[in-house]
Nucleic acid binder design. Structure first.
Lengths: 340, 340
DNA sequence: CTGAAAGCGCTTACAG
DNA sequence: CTGAAAGCGCTTACAG
């Protein structure tokens, strides 16, 4: 059994109040005798007293805890964000609960409920899609909330997204500048706003470069079965465009699969090709150091998500309402992949 | 403001007790009128009642929450375990708090304290090193606890580890069987038990295969500065052993760095070399599909960690003491890396 | 200088 | 069939 305020109070023959005051550092302010304070502190140390945060939170109405919901904790993009959020939260005195929705709407709703039931002070979420039930409810209640990576046009909800269009355009521009003329795009989940933006960026770069946008250079695989489909799609692209000299990958996961294809087909992709990808992973520096990569601003995403959600919390305590904020961050383009 | 039991009780002119009974599904058992129950359920739905888990936990003394502490959430090995643990915990009705120690002793202690203060029911930890202060205290208190990936010989603490020695030996054996005769080892953090075991496995396999264990084939880099050091170490190995024909990597992170080296030096490592690595990542199937990889039993680690810690919790409730358990799991050796 | 008391939102033994 | 009351471990306005 852990020791409680009461244990200390009884042992020392003082009231719980006295113990609570001194332990919370308000001893002097409340005019508690120096000597009494000493005894309390001493005893707390001896009995290895740890305050029960549940009780404190129940009383204060705040848990100093943020919730973070991401689709997949094993995806390096999200895990890097998670780490940033954890660090930023700690700086501001918050601890973090992380949960994966596994891109499953029901799981996401369950987690949201759970977080609310556990009385987290605010939630940062990379939503899977329109979570009609819970999310809009929270928005209505003005619950401190910010979405990252994606956003909903019809919810007045704080969001931090990345300028995927410009990121793609910049990457593809760079590929063109280095001489690519027949650049294929490999993508998935085209219904996602994010992915559509990346495609648009690719197409705009082509047009600006005086290149044609053609269906034959467009490769799409389904999210659930990409390992299987990628070989057919790539074969088709090569068949229809024997002169293809560049590949733009909308995700790092697809890039890996295509590198597997290159390997199996004996294609040395580091010669005669331009490559581009949104988001880099460390393996790229060994697979294709020359690839142009748009680096996601994970630090900024994490830092701002925590900033916004804590500002909402602070405003809520003052009964104010914080104007909602849509933030769009830019990628960076490291020239040396080892900086990823 | 969220609605509480009291709100419902007042609205319906019944007692909080009645509301609590029916909402917890004990209405029939407690002989509460069918009609009253209906009204309560209806009202709860209308007012969107969510029980405050803080209050419930304070009362029951259990939070149905487990804590998980890992060194680095962005490391695919740990994030995969985290996902497994989350799934397993959910199956058993527990939710999960994840935190990264960043391999920092102090952070680890802070997190342990925090978890205790938040009254988690049990903790799963991949400890950084001997956390004298907190961990041994928890062990003494018989707090439900299990360490994964590493263990302490002098603590009677449940642990789940991997047979790193045999995993390494099997991988290196396979390399020898396929013809490698001069196999270098690349490793780091030699003071860790885990890493020492991997080295021992490597050496045993060499001896069994009639090969010499030589210092010139031993490459060690420091954990903090491996990107820099790896080039010198590899150059030295090649200089001292021009006939080197195999590389065994004790971690996937080192493997990636060495692949970068191969790339820069123009070495086609997929011809004339045998490769081996402990733990695989998806990029390997594109980098070196022929590499022999020991696949960590992440599912088993996660499942058993949750099993053991929840068994401890259950025993604790029955005032029993669960005999402590040291579990050692074996790796698997997928022949096709795309199964990783 | 110190303490008794109420309350946070729940659960549950006890009483009618 | 239903409710008043105590208690989980804290904090804090109020009273002396």
């Amino acid at each position: 059994m852990a020791t409680s305020l009461k244990d200390i109070a009884e042992k020392l023959n003082v009231s719980k109040t006295t113990v609570s005051w001194t332990l919370s550092g308000q001893g002097d302010k409340k005019h508690i005798g120096r000597e009494t304070q000493e005894r309390v502190l001493q005893c707390a140390r001896e009995m290895n007293y740890q305050p029960n945060l549940l009780a404190r939170s129940l009383n204060s109405g705040q848990t100093n805890t943020l919730g973070l919901i991401i689709p997949d904790i094993t995806d390096s993009f999200y895990s890097t964000i998670a780490r940033q959020v954890e660090m930023e939260a700690e700086k501001r005195g918050y601890s973090l609960m992380i949960a994966s929705s596994e891109s499953d709407q029901e799981r996401e709703d369950r987690i949201l409920s759970l977080f609310c039931a556990k009385q987290v002070d605010g939630i940062i979420i990379a939503p899977t899609r329109r979570s009609k039930v819970m999310l809009s409810n929270l928005v209505k209640r003005h619950f401190p909330l910010v979405s990252i990576d994606r956003f909903f046009t019809d919810l007045t909800m704080n969001s931090i997204t990345v300028n995927n269009h410009d990121a793609s355009r910049n990457v593809v521009r760079g590929m063109i500048k280095r001489g690519a003329r027949h650049i294929a795009i490999l993508t998935t989940n085209p219904h996602l706003f994010t992915m559509n933006e990346r495609r648009r960026g690719y197409e705009d770069a082509l047009r600006e470069g005086g290149l044609e946008v053609t269906e034959t250079l467009y490769g799409e695989v389904s999210f659930d079965n990409y390992e299987e489909e990628i070989f057919d799609v790539m074969d088709r692209i090569y068949h229809q465009n024997p002169r293809v000299d560049g590949f733009f990958f909308t995700t790092h996961i697809l890039a890996i699969e295509v590198f597997r294809y290159f390997f199996e087909r004996g294609i040395n992709v580091n010669e005669g090709y331009q490559l581009g990808c949104i988001h880099g992973i460390s393996a790229f520096k060994a697979l294709a150091p020359g690839m142009r990569v748009a680096r996601m601003p994970v630090e900024e995403i994490g830092a701002n998500a925590v900033r916004i959600v804590t500002e909402c919390i602070d405003c809520g305590r003052r009964k104010e309402r914080r104007p909602f904020e849509r933030m769009v961050l830019e990628c960076t383009y490291p020239t040396d992949l080892s900086e990823m």
